[in-house]
Design a protein around this nucleic acid. Structure first.
Lengths: 190, 190
DNA sequence: TTACAAAACTAACACTTGTTAGTCTAATTT
DNA sequence: AAATTAGACTAACAAGTGTTAGTTTTGTAA
């Protein structure tokens, strides 16, 4: 039980460092020093550096897919589905800033197997997002903007929210939740 | 003269590799191999790995500031200024995809001095972009959306265009140039 | 108090890193 | 033809990498 907490601590600390310096620029000795122990001691809790990265990246990726899966079947208008997704991005960004940053910047450093898994989760998410847009346009709830451009425009903004969130003094979470959907979706509404 | 071309070749190749694997994951031996020579030979043309990175990142950053400087003083409406900026992002993305990707992903690995320089260029660009929005809103050419959110929303989309451009089979450059400004700016127009 | 397990430690491994020194070869200039 | 130079090469460096083996310390349960 305590072991789990210690492991969690390590992963959290790793995410913080990975975010600041990038996966490859953080050595196991750096990570250990930040934890106040020696590098070798880390291996009592984790099995490899790669495992830490995978654990960070995949947990966030799975969370996103999990959320969109709850949104898709709901009997609500497309705009509301999109708003719910945007809100979820904002919330996750606030709660797990380092994890999100790490996912976006360091997924390339996953080993072949984990990278494949990550990319398939990402593809799945994009497909479901695209489908919400497609249905919304078909039902004339949304304007007929080029769909790939819409998907791209909205998702990349959401993906990089964490950059923004770092300067949270500039905009409150509440303002973000009301104004960001407007900025992103107004182009899609008549 | 030939030396310049060779150097340019190295920097171009480096950008390609940095983009694919990240600055730290590309060794001088990797880069040399891609050029068909040995690592030590690179140093006949460049002085350090860091110099290559700086040369890539700063050239793009300066190009962006250079362009916005030509746009700002023009006697045209805010929307047209913004459209011109968006077009420039699209063009640069098409012409220098690897450089752009490299700037966005690897600027953290600049040494202290170059990082400071890069960040100040970036800050300068954002300030000028923000000012265009501010004036446009003051003149009622633009809607009064939260200005920081607008700056962020538009710039991050433009910054990550290169991700998108990689799948250029999906959308033509021409479509991008007409539809992307619409998506990004319609939320700002009545 | 003793016994045991968890988690720290030291020391070392095999390997990779960016970079330099010194040398040889091929092309260009004199 | 001789001299110079650009640009490749080999060999090596000091430092840093992730990880393992074996040992000692610490805290908890008997």
């Amino acid at each position: 039980m305590n072991k789990n907490n210690r492991r969690e601590d390590i992963v959290l600390t790793a995410a913080k460092l990975f975010r600041k310096k990038g996966y490859n620029a953080v050595s196991m000795r750096d990570l250990a020093a930040e934890m106040g122990i020696k590098a070798a001691s880390l291996y009592n809790h984790i099995s490899s550096k790669q495992e830490i990265l995978a654990s960070i990246v995949l947990s966030v990726a799975k969370d996103f897919v999990g959320h969109i899966d709850t949104v898709v079947p709901q009997p609500i208008a497309s705009i509301e589905k999109l708003t719910s997704i945007i809100h979820h991005h904002i919330e996750l960004t606030a709660e797990q800033t380092d994890f999100l940053a790490c996912m976006n910047n360091d997924w390339i450093h996953l080993d072949e197997e984990n990278k494949t898994l990550y990319l398939s989760l990402r593809k799945e998410y994009e497909a479901k997002f695209r489908e919400i847009l497609r249905v919304g346009m078909a039902k004339n709830e949304l304007k007929n903007i080029h769909i790939e451009i819409s998907v791209f425009g909205i998702l990349t903004t959401l993906r990089t929210l964490y950059v923004w969130y770092a300067k949270k003094d500039v905009v409150s979470l509440k303002t973000l939740k009301t104004d960001l959907p407007r900025l992103l979706l107004d182009g899609l509404i008549d």
